[in-house]
Design a protein around this nucleic acid. Structure first.
Lengths: 352, 352
DNA sequence: TAACCACGCTAATCCGATTTAGCAACCGGC
DNA sequence: GCCGGTTGCTAAATCGGATTAGCGTGGTTA
């Protein structure tokens, strides 16, 4: 901005051709529109010499595509993991030469409205509407205007938008299998939900699905869940409390904690009771929070694939953009991203 | 994008005035250019009825200001706290009706180059160049083109750019004072740096400054640092090792851990030696990682003010933009953001 | 009555590209 | 020698606003 940037007109002049020709060459349509090799070369060289760069704002005005997408989420800061989701989106975007706007709604409808407006005002090519925890939300009308995908969001009413979500049910199955494989048949407790199937924190879709998967696999193996305890929130302190209450009356052999922070609390409670992980009690968990490798013994956990979720969202969004350009309606298919198992040190066969 | 958006021409037609008049009214220059109240009203009403919204891309092309700023950092995902920095920037931007582009360099020069280009191509009004850990970096030339500020970055050579950094020296002083106030005079060890002043991880400017502050206050009080141990990286496992080594030969009364993850490792080591925090050993730390409130006893720590850093960066950036518009050169002043003390449960007077 | 001014609004140009329509020059065929 | 078709390039319109210069009207002033 110190001195005026070079424009296409400058390049054209330097190459001794019309702006039209310069545009044709620089947008790669030289062949198609029969520009001679010689002229093409001249333009290319001129552009090179002048270090010409297209003004994307101008292109945006003319063509309507800004090579920009919006990433709207309820919050980016709450968990470290959320950052990975953005990172994945960022890399997907970079590979396509697209930039990412981000915005937070804080869960407030008017902020959300304003943000979506602001993005449309800037003519984004598409929007990723994300939540940091999988949960049902109503899809804002402003989203339906252009290409958009839902990330970690399950629409309350079916919206004509694709969604990308982690495969929580399968994760639940995986967690259960880990314990079964280690030989556990009894004394398996859930911390964070239960004992009844519907006892999970409200809106915590992840919880519902994880438990579904767990019950399914255990049932298949003819194993009964010994019990479960809800936590008002999935934080260490509640994990601690729930586990303490459990230990007051029972002697569990394995704990399925609904996330790593709960597991951290559970570790503390087990420690208070002088119970060793995994010798006395095995622990499996979900999320793969950094914490999982910091605590001792390291936690076996089913990872939330945040990075992949972010990337996948960009992939699907570009699919939608493409399809929309060709006049097709957007689908509302739901993409399930697998949750990888991280085997570490917190599971062992039950003591004889 | 379903049907054509309404343009200013539509508004003008509906109000029965020229596009010029509509533009004048809608950009708030009606008074200045003597448009009658009646006409102004008509235009405003027409705009309202049609739900007109300015096309910012168009404005950007004409005026050169896109109401968009770029946030370029080495990484967003590494720490949970980094998210707070973005959150602060996001809110500052929102208050000004500005959107935020984000991008990651991963510390690679060519990505960095490409990102800055991409942002300039989109005519951002300014750029925040951030690192997630305070450290010296060379400032890319592409940054000097337009308004920019450095966030958490200390330029290797003085650049003509303002920088925003946490006040680490003062944080070091605060940490030392906490121990002195509790009555500690001896057996104070640093974990993460030392024993000599220059023994800190390379490029960890935070470490250097924290230790500077610590030494300063202790010296003033006539107290000698009992010792210190470097860690190859500031992670729990190294905190654990360093503390274990220390405990092999000494019996410390207080630990100043250079961050919370080190402190977490230190807790584990103290636990291994059956030493109680804070009865046997007091612990102070830095960062205020979420971990600090999860471990028991809760950690007294000097918080990294990520949120404020992000906000401040936006404030300063807009100062620069303003000044640049008026033809002034950008300053290169450095803004120190205070690090708040979080008193919790890990410090007690030394046992008699 | 002519010259001048203030008022209230508009025509025309511009920002930096893309895109459509079209214009010369050349070629071959009859 | 005329016609039609390529070939290779350009003029001009366009996107949606901001901005500058100016135009008609009515009232004042000399």
């Amino acid at each position: 901005m110190s001195r005026r940037r070079v424009t296409m007109a400058d390049v054209a002049k330097q190459a001794g051709v019309s702006p039209t020709t310069a545009s044709l060459v620089l947008s790669g349509r030289a062949r198609e529109l029969r520009i001679s090799r010689a002229v093409e070369q001249r333009v290319l060289e001129a552009a090179e010499q002048l270090a010409y760069r297209r003004n994307i704002v101008s292109v945006g005005l003319r063509t309507g595509t800004t090579r920009t997408i919006g990433f709207v989420s309820d919050t980016v800061a709450t968990t470290r993991l959320a950052g990975d989701m953005i990172k994945g989106a960022l890399e997907g975007a970079r590979e396509r030469g697209v930039m990412l706007f981000i915005g937070e709604t804080e869960g407030e409808a008017d902020l959300e409205q304003g943000l979506l407006q602001a993005m449309h005002d800037r003519r984004v090519d598409g929007i990723i509407f994300a939540a940091m925890f999988t949960r049902p939300m109503k899809v804002p009308a402003a989203l339906l205007g252009g290409p958009a995908v839902l990330l970690n969001v399950v629409p309350k009413r079916s919206a004509a938008l694709p969604s990308i979500v982690p495969d929580e049910v399968e994760a639940g199955r995986a967690a259960a299998r880990i314990l079964l494989d280690a030989g556990h048949r009894e004394g398996i407790h859930v911390i964070g939900a239960g004992p009844r199937p519907r006892d999970v924190p409200p809106d915590a879709l992840a919880g519902v699905e994880r438990v579904t998967g767990i019950r399914e696999v255990l049932a298949e193996a003819g194993v009964q869940l010994a019990g479960g305890r809800v936590c008002p929130d999935w934080l260490p302190e509640y994990g601690y409390e729930a586990t303490m209450q459990l230990l007051a009356t029972e002697r569990p052999r394995a704990l399925i904690c609904l996330n790593d922070r709960i597991a951290f609390g559970a570790y503390q409670a087990l420690d208070d009771h002088a119970l060793k992980v995994p010798a006395d009690v095995s622990v499996v968990s979900f999320d793969d929070h950094p914490l999982a490798t910091w605590i001792r013994p390291k936690l076996t956990t089913i990872a939330l694939p945040f990075y992949e979720l972010g990337r996948k969202a960009v992939d699907v969004l570009f699919d939608v953009i493409e399809r929309q350009r060709e006049g097709e309606a957007a689908g509302d298919e739901s993409h399930r991203v697998p949750m990888p198992v991280r085997i570490r040190e917190s599971v062992a066969p039950p003591a004889a």
